[in-house]
Simulated scan of single mutants.
Amino acid sequence: MRNRKKLKKHVVTAITAAKEIFDHNLGDECTAYKTALKYGVCRNVLQKAFKDEYGVGIRDYRLRVRMEKSKDMLAAGKDAKEISITLHYSNPSAFNNAFKRYFKVTPKEMFDFTEGDSFCA
C-alpha cells in the first residue's frame, strides 16, 4: 500500500478486514458503514483508504466480486434464479439487469452456445 505508513494501524486493519469481508459476503448486509463501525473508523476514511489500497472504491469492488462469482456460477451451469438468490439480488430480473450493465451482454448471451459454435478455428 502506498499510503500505509501514513495510516493509523487500526485503519490498515479495517481495510484489510473489509476486503476479506467483502470477498466472502456477497450480499448487501455487510455495508461499508457497518464495517467501519465495527472497526472504529469513519466510513469516509475507510472508503478512501480502501480505494488508495486496492485502486477501486468499495461499491465497485463489491460489484466486481459479485459479477465474477456470477460468471463462475453461470459457467458451472447454475440458472439466474439460483444465482440471484445466492448473490442476494431481489429477483432474477434484477440480477440479469446488473449482469448486463456490467458485462454488456446478458447471462444467456454470454453462456448460450449452440452446437455449431466452436472455439477452435
Rank of each mutant, 00 (worst) to 15 (best):
C30Y: 06
C30Q: 08
C30L: 01
T31W: 02
T31V: 07
T31I: 09
T31Q: 04
Y33M: 07
K34T: 07
K34H: 03
K34V: 06
K34F: 04
T35Q: 00
T35R: 00
A36S: 05
A36M: 04
A36V: 02
L37V: 01
L37K: 02
L37C: 04
K38I: 04
K38S: 15
G40C: 03
V41H: 01
V41M: 05
C42E: 14
R43D: 14
N44H: 11
N44Q: 14
V45W: 00
Q47S: 14
Q47A: 14
K48F: 04
K48G: 03
K48I: 05
K48S: 08
F50K: 05
F50Q: 06
F50S: 04
F50W: 02
K51H: 14
D52Q: 15
D52Y: 08
E53H: 12
E53A: 15
E53I: 03
Y54Q: 11
Y54H: 13
G55W: 12
G55M: 11
G55T: 14
G55F: 08
G55K: 08
V56A: 04
V56F: 01
G57K: 03
G57P: 07
I58N: 08
I58P: 03
I58S: 02
I58L: 07
I58D: 11
R59E: 14
Y61R: 05
R62H: 10
R62F: 01
R62M: 06
L63G: 02
L63S: 13
L63Y: 03
R64H: 13
R64W: 10
R64L: 06
R64V: 08
V65Q: 06
R66A: 09
R66Y: 11
K69Q: 11
K69V: 05
S70G: 12
K71E: 11
D72S: 09
D72R: 03
M73C: 04
M73P: 03
M73A: 09
L74A: 00
L74S: 00
L74G: 00
L74W: 00
A75D: 05
A75H: 10
A76F: 00
G77R: 04
G77D: 09
K78F: 14
K78M: 14
D79W: 03
D79S: 12
D79C: 11
D79T: 10
A80D: 15
A80F: 04
K81F: 12
E82Q: 15
E82M: 13
E82V: 15
I83F: 08
S84V: 02
I85D: 09
I85M: 06
I85H: 02
I85S: 05
